[in-house]
């Protein structure tokens, strides 16, 4: 069944925050771990993990949506 235009707008605008939110959370976790352990590299590691997490979520959503359309 084809989804109404408004529903599609809703679904695709929801993707817009996926990448920045995951990246930001990754950085914040790394920043606090750095502060806790007195290190200076964990923020980079978690920033990269955050970026990866964002992409992973995005890819999962795409796989799911393309699966729904039967393609």
């Amino acid at each position: 069944m084809k989804k109404p235009f408004v529903v599609l707008v809703g679904e695709y605008t929801s993707l817009a925050f996926l990448l920045p939110a995951a990246t930001c959370v990754g950085y914040v976790i790394g920043y606090f771990l750095d502060k806790k352990f007195g290190t200076h590299y964990l923020y980079l590691v978690f920033l990269l993990l955050g970026i990866a997490a964002g992409f992973l979520q995005l890819i999962r959503r795409l796989l799911r949506d393309s699966g729904e359309n039967g393609s």
Partner: peptide, 11 residues
Amino acid sequence: EIISHMARPLS
């Protein structure tokens, strides 16, 4: 996974 779950309430 932990990061992506924690990003959900933020986003």
